[in-house]
Design a protein around this nucleic acid. Sequence first.
DNA 1: ATTCCTTTGTTGTAAAAACAACAGATTTAT
DNA 2: ATAAATCTGTTGTTTTTACAACAAAGGAAT
Lengths: 219, 219
Amino acid sequence: MKKYVPILARTQLFRGVEACQVEAMLHCLDARLCTYQKGEYILRQGDTLDDIVIMVEGSAHIQKDDYWGSRSILGHLEAGDMFGEAYAAPESGPLLNDVVATDNCAAIFFDVRRVITTCSSACVFHALVVQNMFFAICEKNKALVQKLGHMSQRSTKEKLLSYLSEEAKRQGSAAFEIPFNRQQLADFLSVDRSAMSNELCKLRDAGIIRFARNRFELL
Amino acid sequence: MKKYVPILARTQLFRGVEACQVEAMLHCLDARLCTYQKGEYILRQGDTLDDIVIMVEGSAHIQKDDYWGSRSILGHLEAGDMFGEAYAAPESGPLLNDVVATDNCAAIFFDVRRVITTCSSACVFHALVVQNMFFAICEKNKALVQKLGHMSQRSTKEKLLSYLSEEAKRQGSAAFEIPFNRQQLADFLSVDRSAMSNELCKLRDAGIIRFARNRFELL
DNA sequence: ATTCCTTTGTTGTAAAAACAACAGATTTAT
DNA sequence: ATAAATCTGTTGTTTTTACAACAAAGGAAT
């Protein structure tokens, strides 16, 4: 666990907390390290969650499969990202999605009650962590609204452009990589893969985008 | 403003705070009452917001219009509902949506910094309000994920059933009212109104639902 | 290097949704 | 009460998407 302290110290949750302080807080927050093989389920729809999870290695998808086997991908997590904040409230009910490892990966679980309840004395930085968590949820909220913005586009082409241009903006460059292959991107945008692939090529032929594999560029 | 104190006391933000205490906190939170005519903009996309807004009368839609005039409705607010929590974080950027009065309505604005910063002495309940706000954002987060669940359905019929069954569950009854007319429901689900109307009638003819105006029943 | 498996692009067909136009019902305004 | 405006359902047409099947390209494993 110790080796992940530098990564934790750079996360949103521990912003402003020195690495040595993070290490000191681990016990106080009941931190537990878990590792997963690619494809393994980290969390399952319907589970109840009393922890906040921070990915410290590898990556994962937040997704849901319906009865007919069609999948929808809600989001993507990589090292440094947090999951489960929204279930911090008591009686927040079971998870609405699965979290599945897309690589071999490692995650640290923190007891949510210990995170949001400032402890008696030791952790001087605890109040800061509570505030960071608060702001993290605000940001996730905005990210969800943006995803809804993509999903509310009426055509596949518009969905693609909406997503790709936001991603370019987010990554601060017209050339960027996305954490999805074609099928995953289709599941993320809730469209058909082949139709989407078709639209991507039309956009390329129209000189609007360039791409190779999961690397895209807006022109 | 005083007349809305009982309503405020029943909101999520002031849960656990007595009405008389709420009244005492109004000044401390820099509460301001604003009223709007039906159709008026309460907030505009691109605005920066340093307040948390609680609707105390009437109702409003959170929505966005694109350049081609097509509208997408993100959500609905009525008396007691809160808006703007997600912009509580500093540097959270401009609003992504408009908020538009769908009735004559009244809203109270609270200075967000005063809400999330517990003040020196007077307000013994302030810490409770901070926690309530935290949980409110968690809940909104879950609501957004559920909306994404509806939007990620591939067909209009599935979107309708996903939304209607969640609404039935949320309202705790197979018979319930929705805060949208047909055009608004279509804008909420990002589908075409006439096609949706058609699907609704097919569902009715198949004996799956009943409806009249904005009153629905699942069979 | 060869084989196997995965990913991506391409095409044709079937199904669904968007669009447009309109009639009847209901509500609102005068 | 009447007229005007809005809302809802219905239909036919056009456009788009989903689906299915397959070939080509790229990577991984042996």
